[in-house]
């Protein structure tokens, strides 16, 4: 990989010479590759992702979760404590908890599904459309394309979790009385600080999904059939949670990327416990490193025949 990067550097330098020799007009082509070029590609990728109807359909589906929870509880009344998903019983007392309750519901299946679609489609989708070859001969650079695709998937993780939390909070605001937030430790914090804690939860869950995104990106480099990579990514998320629920496999649990998915509740204690955030970030970082390396190794040597 380092030799590749060295090549890229000398390549850029050679190109500068060629551009000078050829007298190419500088309104068209910059002599030296600049970091802003990569930012522009990322900008273009994000714009492409968020102009897709599919992306908005997935965000819409995620938005339906807090809306359904809010309306159902408003109509049928609150559930008694201890029944249903966590935080559900607190909604009638404080509408701000709709977002957090919805997050608890979304984490096991809905969020991993949308991540599976976005990350699994990253390379395989381009390959199936045939656009991968045109991006590569632009030339986008294989590692650069992977990095941009991964960052776009990460942006979608954040968009997904923010959708659930922000929309949930708004729905709760509209349908229920709101007030100071009672934390798990029993303390009360003002609404403003409560909202900040909720945003931290969105960030926590987004980070939780980074490992899965890296797995999806790797699977996406293995195939030209996007639905295969999408399904495989989503299934892995479910399998990992099932393994995490079997006590006999406890030795494996700390290594599962889903192991700390529901630990966001630690952010709702007073004072907030950031240990789980750090431990989760470390766990996800390890997955990103391993599967990112696998994706790069696979992708830079792959013959693009689609």
């Amino acid at each position: 990989m380092s030799s590749r990067e060295a090549d890229a550097t000398t390549g850029a330098a050679r190109d500068a010479d060629l551009a000078d020799a050829g007298g190419t007009t500088d309104t068209v082509r910059r002599p030296r590759a600049a970091a802003s070029g990569t930012l522009r590609l990322l900008g273009n990728e994000l714009a492409t992702l968020f102009t897709r109807w599919r992306t908005w359909a997935m965000l819409g589906a995620l938005a339906l979760i807090p809306i359904l929870i809010g309306i159902a509880i408003r109509i049928a009344g609150g559930s008694s404590a201890g029944r249903g998903p966590a935080f559900l019983d607190q909604i009638t007392g404080n509408g701000l908890f709709v977002g957090i309750a919805a997050m608890t519901v979304a984490i096991p299946l809905f969020l991993p599904l949308t991540i599976g679609v976005t990350a699994g489609d990253a390379i395989a989708g381009e390959a199936s459309h045939g656009t991968l070859r045109y991006l590569l001969i632009a030339p986008a650079g294989r590692i650069r394309l992977l990095v941009v695709k991964y960052l776009a998937a990460a942006a979608f993780c954040l968009a997904g979790t923010l959708t659930v939390v922000v929309l949930g909070t708004l729905v709760g605001w509209l349908l229920f009385p709101i007030g100071p937030v009672t934390l798990l430790s029993g303390d009360e914090i003002p609404v403003g600080e409560g909202l900040l804690r909720f945003l931290a939860v969105a960030a926590y869950v987004a980070v939780s999904l980074l490992g899965l995104s890296a797995i999806g990106l790797f699977l996406s480099t293995l195939t030209t059939v996007p639905i295969g990579a999408m399904a495989a990514t989503s299934i892995l998320a479910v399998v990992s949670q099932i393994v995490g629920a079997i006590p006999q496999l406890e030795a494996l649990h700390p290594w599962l990327f889903t192991d700390r998915w529901l630990d966001f509740a630690d952010l709702l204690r007073s004072p907030p416990v950031w240990d789980s955030f750090a431990a989760n970030a470390l766990l996800q970082g390890a997955y990103v490193l391993v599967f990112g390396t696998l994706a790069i190794t696979r992708f830079v040597t792959r013959d693009v025949l689609s």
Binding site: R29, A33, A34, G37, L41, L135, A140, G141
Partner: peptide, 9 residues
Amino acid sequence: FDAADRHSI
């Protein structure tokens, strides 16, 4: 495709 080329302006 043009944005994919890091040398394009």
